[in-house]
Design a binder for these strands. Structure first.
Length: 213
DNA sequence: TTCACGATTCTA
DNA sequence: AGAATCGTGAAG
């Protein structure tokens, strides 16, 4: 890897200050940002975030609403870390811890669009974790420096972006909160808002290698 | 120790 | 609409 390319990557890593805000502020800002994983062979695995949800201790759907336990401990930790949990005994879900310590707050990464790959390869939290090979071992990873995994700033400059705001899905409590956001132009959304038609294939936006930096 | 239940996905 | 599948927390 070129030295200057490495510098460029470092300058694009989202800092702790980005995450030190309430989840409902971070979640929409994360749309268009990139999740990057460096594999042991030196290759990069990356995708553009196209769907997120915010969760906060102040509302019932949050894992930290009732109690602070060993399972949700990471969500109470420092912002800029990864919170991973297992759901339905089968799928892992990837969250970014936000706001401040001792306050359960985070953003669920629900869908990614990946260059050169099928639209739905990382469309949904379980599939996203599966494609990035992330599991409970990665719980509490720090995302704000260049290790194996980090988040990089928004590089969607080639298209006019529209971020749709709607209610969260797959939950039974606090359903009415409009704390889900997605990129309207992407076909990699797990579920669209009623009345929002999926963009047609030829015109639809999809990341390319030029979106990397 | 037991039991009910998911921040999901795939199949019928 | 229903199944698959298992770690966790609450209850007994």
């Amino acid at each position: 890897m070129q030295k200057n390319k490495l510098k460029l990557i470092e300058s694009n890593i989202l800092p702790i200050s980005f995450f030190s805000r309430p989840a409902e502020q971070v979640a929409p800002d994360l749309i268009g940002c990139k999740l990057v994983r460096k594999l042991s062979n030196g290759d990069f695995l990356w995708g553009v975030i196209v769907e997120t949800e915010a969760y906060s201790q102040s509302e019932e759907a949050c894992h930290g609403y009732f109690h602070r336990t060993s399972r949700n401990e990471t969500l109470f930790g420092e912002p800029g870390h990864l919170y991973v949990y297992l759901t339905y005994g089968i799928y892992h879900c990837i969250n970014v811890v936000t706001d401040r310590s001792n306050w359960a707050n985070g953003v669920l990464l629900r869908a990614l669009a990946m260059p050169g790959e099928h639209e739905r390869i990382a469309s949904g939290p379980g599939l996203l974790a599966k494609r990035f090979e992330l599991n409970l071992c990665h719980d509490n990873c720090q995302l704000t420096q260049e290790n194996d995994l980090w988040l990089a700033s928004n590089s969607l400059t080639s298209i006019n972006t529209t971020v749709v705001r709607t209610t969260r899905i797959g939950i039974t409590k606090a359903k009415e909160l409009p704390w889900r956001w997605y990129l309207k132009e992407s076909r990699s959304i797990s579920k669209r808002k009623r009345g929002d038609r999926c963009p047609p294939k030829p015109q639809a936006w999809h990341p390319t290698s030029s979106d990397y930096l």
